[in-house]
């Protein structure tokens, strides 16, 4: 139970102690350090010799030796780790791409804008739709509309996001011709136009979980004492809904998005592949087929950092808005 007695947000007033903030920061920092270590060992869980995987089965011993040197595998594990951490802190990088030769960080930064834009559009779409559906369901509790909306998660939970993308392409691009079949069109408007369908696909996969939790949150507010009191005071239910219930649902929505951000990023990487968008996802798959370990590590690191930092920000914002959430930390 996250909050059994939620009333008006911010009502508890100013909290003088910043201990929770420091604790949250320290914890995020420790998690970031663990993430770095995990990314370092990522390449080492590969069975066999990574250099051999890159060069192929019939590589010369000399080429192997060179590759070991490039990857730093000729050093001891501890030295490798120190080198890895040093590079991360001085350059924010995980090494040069084995295939292209340029820094992994630059490759990632080059591809990031499209992916970020896609995630941004998808989040907005998902939040707006989920809030709408959850409001309808919560205000029509146990009626037909509510039942219909509650069935949605059961059906969509088992829908692979790439499959939904294929069906959307079939319907909206091939049959109706509203959107390009894949890739990104020229120009600002063209880019946005090409991103609509992939964004809808990603949002579609996020909405069910959001609706399910939001509906529960809203019902809790709707059935709470203060709403009952407002009702008893004769305040019209529309006013109660928009002024109080929706406002009280803003924070849980934000926190939910924090929990979902990791799924959002993961889903985006897969959806990019379906729509042929050249973002982080396609970079990941090219790097995987090229066995380009430094770039794979870089993508893993940056995605994880994004998740940790966004979660931290959301934690701070919700702690600020509603001091009671801090008790749960």
């Amino acid at each position: 139970m996250m909050n059994s007695k939620r009333t008006l947000t911010g009502a508890a007033g100013h909290n003088g102690s910043y201990k929770w903030l420091i604790l949250a920061l320290v914890r995020a920092l420790i998690v970031i350090l663990c993430v770095m270590t995990a990314v370092f060992f990522l390449i080492r869980i590969v069975p066999g010799d990574p250099a051999k995987m890159i060069l192929g089965e019939y590589s010369t011993p000399e080429a192997l030796k060179n590759m070991h040197h490039t990857l730093g595998l000729d050093l001891s594990l501890w030295e490798q780790f120190i080198r890895f951490v040093k590079m991360l802190f001085t350059q924010g990088d995980t090494g040069n791409s084995i295939i292209v030769g340029t820094s992994s960080r630059e490759l990632i930064v080059e591809r990031a804008p499209v992916t970020l834009l896609l995630i941004g559009i998808a989040s907005i779409l998902a939040i707006v739709t989920a809030l709408l559906l959850a409001t309808v369901a919560a205000t029509h509790k146990d009626k037909l509309l509510d039942h219909l909306i509650r069935i949605i998660p059961a059906i969509t939970l088992g829908m692979p996001v790439f499959w939904v993308g294929i069906l959307f392409i079939l319907l909206f691009s091939v049959r109706l011709g509203w959107f390009p079949v894949g890739g990104i069109s020229e120009g600002g408007l063209g880019t946005l136009h090409s991103l609509v369908l992939p964004a809808v696909t990603i949002a579609f996969s996020q909405i069910p979980t959001l609706v399910r939790s939001l509906r529960a949150q809203m019902l809790e507010v709707l059935e709470s004492e203060f709403v009952v009191t407002l009702r008893a005071a004769g305040i019209p239910s529309r006013v109660i809904l928009f002024k109080h219930v929706l406002r009280n649902s803003a924070l849980p929505t934000l926190m939910l998005l924090g929990v979902n951000i990791s799924y959002l990023i993961g889903g985006t990487l897969v959806v990019e592949q379906v729509f042929g968008i050249k973002g982080i996802g396609s970079l990941l798959f090219t790097s995987i087929s090229n066995r380009d370990f430094p770039v794979i590590q870089g993508i893993a690191l940056y995605c994880a950092l994004a998740v940790v930092i966004i979660s931290l920000l959301i934690e701070i914002i919700s702690g600020w808005l509603d001091p009671r959430t801090k008790e749960n930390q």
Partner: peptide
């Protein structure tokens, strides 16, 4: 917390590929 920081599909794709 460390595992959760990695997007589910990212880690699944990388580990499946690596193993």
């Amino acid at each position: 917390d460390t595992f959760i920081a990695f997007p589910f599909y990212l880690i699944v794709i990388i580990v499946a590929f690596a193993s």
